[in-house]
Design a protein around this nucleic acid. Sequence first.
DNA 1: GAGGTTGTCAACGCGTTAGTTGACTGAAAG
DNA 2: CTTTCAGTCAACTAACGCGTTGACAACCTC
Lengths: 217, 217
Amino acid sequence: MTQPLAASRISQRRQAALADGGADYSAKRADLIRVAAIVFREKGYATATLNDIAALFGTDRASLYYYVASKEELFQECIQNILNANVATAVLIADLPVSPREKLTKLIEVMISSQVEHFPYMYVYIQEDMRQVVSQDAEWATRMVEQTHRLERFFIDAILEGVADGSFRAGLSATLTANGLFGMLLWTHRWFVPGRKYSAQDLTSTFTTLFFDGLAK
Amino acid sequence: MTQPLAASRISQRRQAALADGGADYSAKRADLIRVAAIVFREKGYATATLNDIAALFGTDRASLYYYVASKEELFQECIQNILNANVATAVLIADLPVSPREKLTKLIEVMISSQVEHFPYMYVYIQEDMRQVVSQDAEWATRMVEQTHRLERFFIDAILEGVADGSFRAGLSATLTANGLFGMLLWTHRWFVPGRKYSAQDLTSTFTTLFFDGLAK
DNA sequence: GAGGTTGTCAACGCGTTAGTTGACTGAAAG
DNA sequence: CTTTCAGTCAACTAACGCGTTGACAACCTC
């Protein structure tokens, strides 16, 4: 070795492993993040400890630092992927040549099925208020808040489109309407457990009926 | 004093003060709880420190123990009152001799105006998942979860009533419908700031229109 | 002004947690 | 057989936060 004696710090070894991106390493790192999401979901970000995560991961707390630099990095990885994926899907839907009602239906489906498929990730994304969680890294947090706003924007735009073409009722604030719908969709994280009693299909059909046609006969 | 030297522990003095319930003491204690709610709202229960609360309250952290026994007690006081008040109001509404639609409308009004009038308290109640927050005191936590379920139950019952008398559409699960509505109402805690742009009236009218009659024309 | 009460606070104990270090094991490579 | 390297882990650090103690000043009250 050319370096005299100093090359043993764990962060350097992590960065090296990240850099040449071995398949095994990446897979195990992804695994760790999945485990972290489960623990965050159960205990909340602040209450969850690296010990809890390491225990469920089946290793020692110190070993985690071979894969991530900090607790916050675990959190960021949990959220970033799922949020970006949802925004990307929403972009595709926005460009479809279909009616506003169909667009909104598809957006609803995306949000619901996202919660089923990425259960702990979505929970963490919804439950934790990023501005409460993240410390100095305001840059990352604001980027994520921006992404969330982009997502909301797709809903609002579809609503406005429908009002413009006469298929939706006028006179309601599109922002309030979108926030109401968002509430319906996101609040599920508190009571909905995939694979128990209700399916994603049940949720989407109930919510679309309610949102478009209302409860009254 | 009959006790030789031992009577100086702060918890005893707190209990004495609580017992004879002086007006000044009670008022200041209530004040402290209000301040705590504000801090919990801003930072989240786990992240908020007693130092933060004491600072905003304008005193030393140690002084807080003259008013409450623990951080958890602060949390409990924040939630208990507002939740019990809401349940009590819901009981009154449930007994009114009005149509299911009117009952639901009133329930919606209660939840919205509760958020306006008791802004930080309601936020804490909604945001924090009690089972994540409370430690050993499972007894209190389950009681609060029960109260929340009672509240939900009033919504479900009103919906079932309307389905029975033919004014609401059949074929939707009352539970899913109620949860959807609950989502609309509670999610407001993330984006709604009282006294800015939208009023409570705006919210209730938009949400009732949406919920009963839908967005489609 | 003596004695008690109210509210306060500096200082400490104690547990817990994030993050670091340096050395170990075991397997692959040469 | 030796070297190397991926992965692990015991042990340490430094900080932080909750809750307690004991004393102290201001203010009644008699």
